[in-house]
């Protein structure tokens, strides 16, 4: 197990694995997303209460779900950076933070546009919406802090501490709808219970969540490769790779 852990720390090894995985992640991810969204938009039945506006769920929930789980992954990577000083963990955090920020923004934007016809307002300062906005600012903070410190090691540690401190926001986002009165409704999907929607609604939703996960995986591999190339530009294997005509 430790051997895998050490191998994972090798940028060269990761670069190779990422290259093999990327086409699969991209094309399977796209296929799942297209299937899920197409099904959800055109074939899933409408909701008895919200009519067709609920079709926003097929991108709102995947974005919001990924936004939070990307942050959790960043927190794990932050822990690895602080305890094991693994370079690749910091590469992951730096590569993924902008993706997380975009996903959080999309969750907020689609939520606002969905809120207007259903609730009657674009925005309300309830606990769920506010904690999600804090998540967006945390992502901005991580990006800014990483860019502000030029020394690779201190930047990695500072960013890891910020990510770990911010991780308390994740349970707050998740349980805000249960702990406090909010306008946002409680979760439709719970691990322990059957989803409170019929299969012809949740299956396409599941497809688009999985699809977005894989596309996120593709983006992560791509962006981590870029970051590795920048950092390891002086090593022999990168020089060989460049000479071999990579792109």
């Amino acid at each position: 197990m430790w051997q895998i852990f050490h191998k994972l720390g090798s940028p060269k090894w990761f670069f190779g694995i990422a290259s093999t995985l990327m086409p699969w992640l991209l094309w399977v991810g796209l296929a799942l997303m297209v299937a899920g969204i197409g099904w959800g938009l055109a074939f899933a039945p409408q909701d008895y209460l919200q009519g067709n506006s609920y079709r926003i769920i097929f991108i709102h929930v995947p974005s919001a779900f990924l936004a939070q789980s990307v942050y959790m992954m960043m927190a794990v990577a932050g822990l690895v950076t602080l305890v094991w000083r693994m370079k690749l963990a910091d590469v992951f955090v730096k590569a993924v933070a902008p993706v997380g920020a975009v996903l959080t923004f999309l969750a907020l934007f689609t939520g606002a546009v969905w809120g207007k016809p259903t609730w009657g307002t674009w925005w309300i300062w309830d606990a769920r919406l506010t904690s999600m906005l804090i998540l967006l600012f945390l992502y901005f903070g991580v990006i800014a802090l990483g860019a502000a410190i030029s020394d690779e090691k201190s930047s990695a540690r500072a960013v890891a501490v910020l990510v770990l401190v911010g991780v308390v926001n994740i349970p707050i986002i998740k349980y805000s709808v249960e702990w406090w009165n909010t306008l946002h409704q409680p979760a439709t999907f719970k691990l322990t219970e059957k989803p409170s929607m019929p299969a012809e609604m949740w299956v396409p939703l599941l497809l688009s969540v999985l699809g977005l996960y894989l596309i996120f995986g593709w983006l992560t591999c791509l962006r981590m490769q870029t970051e590795i190339l920048v950092r390891e530009g002086r090593t022999r294997w990168v020089k060989e790779l460049v000479q071999a005509g990579g792109n």
């Binding site: 909701d47 008895y48 259903t118 009657g120 307002t121 409704q185 409680p186 439709t188 409170s196 019929p198």
Partner: peptide, 18 residues
């Protein structure tokens, strides 16, 4: 001076609700 609608976490097709 303002009324907002709150809905629950249940989604279903109209026929099922009927």
């Amino acid at each position: 001076d303002q009324v907002l609608a709150k809905h629950d976490e249940n989604y279903m097709p109209p026929e099922v609700n009927e």
